[in-house]
């Protein structure tokens, strides 16, 4: 996770602020291949290489793919304040949150993006 926060007072009346957070988050299940049991009774046919064998398929190498997770999130805010006088300040900002889902799980592709624009005035008293 990287984050940066910056505040710039450009003039007595104008200031800018910026915040950014970049996060990568991964969860993975290492692939593994289960050894074939060595004590299977003779009457139980095992042939893991045989696709049509109903008695066993001990190749588990793929199961990590089912539940691996890989998200990348970028959050950013940029804003400006304009001081009307000692008490009143106008503000405007834009906030972007972006999520990239590179390993789809049971919830489908969670990739999404939200942009929010805000403006208003703050008065101190």
């Amino acid at each position: 996770m990287f984050f940066v926060n910056a505040n710039l007072t450009a003039s007595p009346k104008v200031s800018f602020f910026m915040e950014g957070v970049y996060t990568t988050a991964k969860g993975s299940f290492d692939p593994f291949d289960l050894p074939l049991p060595d004590d299977i009774p003779a009457d139980v046919a095992i042939s893991p290489d045989h696709v049509g064998d109903s008695k066993g398929a001990y190749d588990f190498t793929g199961i990590g793919d089912y539940s691996d997770l890989d998200y990348t999130t970028l959050e950013g805010t940029f804003g400006v304040n304009y001081k009307l006088d000692q008490r009143a300040t106008l503000y405007g900002s834009v906030n972007v949150v972006d999520l990239q889902d590179d390993q789809t799980y049971v919830y489908g592709d969670l990739t999404g993006n939200i942009v929010t624009y805000a403006t208003g005035m703050t008065v101190g008293f």
Partner: peptide
């Protein structure tokens, strides 16, 4: 598919 039994039962137990 060949691995569908695994995919069903080794993806999300709480289903």
């Amino acid at each position: 598919h060949y691995d569908s039994m695994k995919r069903s039962m080794l993806t999300k137990c709480t289903q």
